[in-house]
Design a protein around this nucleic acid. Structure first.
Length: 287
DNA sequence: AAAGCGTGGAG
DNA sequence: TCTCCAAGCTT
């Protein structure tokens, strides 16, 4: 086992050395890495690139962002999705200024304490921004390890304790190259060991992959995704998009008319206000 | 701890 | 067209 993993680490990091995407946050600051990690939560790289560049140009450090109202962050978030991430990133910047002297903390627990930073993001920043050894367990890594060691097409629906233990073992066994291993195995999942069409012919560890050896048995079909049409989520998205495109605010009545079910629109608007994504200013709604 | 939370591109 | 899913977090 131990030797197998050592060999796999060497193979994957070797593959990574010649297959590294030139992503801008990879030659940025810890702040740039933190911003990228927030934006990349459930959002593809291709959609993040331009927004990230704009953010880093406008707010090159946490203090610059913290100096502006959170509405500026929501506006600049554009259509990345999950706009509460913009609020949390703004709150994180504020906390970094208030509690960490304006510098993104290197300490893993301090990172975990920031708004919007969970197990993955804390490990990713510690690893990618500072080179420290933490198990970076994102959807890519989970899929790679599930195939490589469990022989299953997909990992369980949610990260399990067993997965965390296993990821930590890999990190430990990577030793001084833990951060390199983290980036490499994640990149392998993103580029080769993909969810839909894995390219096993290009995989540096296909020969030792349990799922490959078993002949690519299909995994359990996953539960159907939540229906979208008519959901509160969709309604929130429609309403927020109207507000976002109304720099001077939009009349409440006019805003609610953007959704045919008025009761649902009222509920959704209440939620947006409660979340702090929009503000009620008399009869006007604005960011 | 299960559910809620956006968006757009690929297959 | 429609389903899947993309560097998760919070309550």
């Amino acid at each position: 086992m131990h030797a197998d993993r050592q060999a796999a680490i060497a193979s994957v990091t070797g593959w990574f050395a010649v297959n590294t995407r030139d992503l801008p946050w990879r030659h940025s600051t810890p702040w740039g890495v933190l911003v990228s990690e927030f934006m990349l939560q459930q959002t593809p790289v291709s959609r993040v690139l331009d927004v990230w560049a704009y953010w880093l140009g406008r707010w090159p450090n946490p203090a610059a962002l913290a100096a502006e109202p959170s509405s500026a962050a929501v506006a600049a978030w554009g259509r990345l999705g999950y706009p509460r991430r913009a609020l949390r990133l703004h709150a994180a910047a504020t906390a970094i200024v208030g509690e960490h002297g304006g510098e993104v903390p290197r300490d893993h627990d301090a990172l975990l304490g920031l708004p919007g930073v969970g197990a993955y993001t804390a490990a990713a920043v510690a690893s990618f921004a500072f080179g420290d050894a933490y198990p970076v367990l994102d959807t890519n890594v989970r899929r790679v390890l599930a195939r490589l060691e469990s022989g299953t097409q997909f990992p369980p629906p949610h990260p399990s304790a067993a997965e965390r233990v296993r990821a930590t073992e890999w990190t430990t066994q990577a030793g001084p190259r833990a951060a390199l291993w983290a980036a490499a195995v994640m990149e392998l999942g993103a580029l080769v060991c993909t969810s839909r069409r894995p390219d096993c012919g290009a995989c540096p560890v296909a020969e030792s992959c349990a799922w490959h050896a078993a002949g690519h048995p299909p995994g359990r079909t996953r539960p159907r995704a939540q229906a979208w049409a008519g959901t509160n989520r969709q309604c929130r998205g429609v309403l927020l998009d109207v507000v976002r495109r109304s720099p001077d605010g939009v009349d409440v009545t006019h805003l609610l008319a953007a959704w045919d079910d008025r009761d649902q629109a009222v509920t959704a608007l209440d939620g947006l206000v409660a979340d702090g994504l929009v503000a009620l200013d008399g009869h006007l709604v604005r960011l």
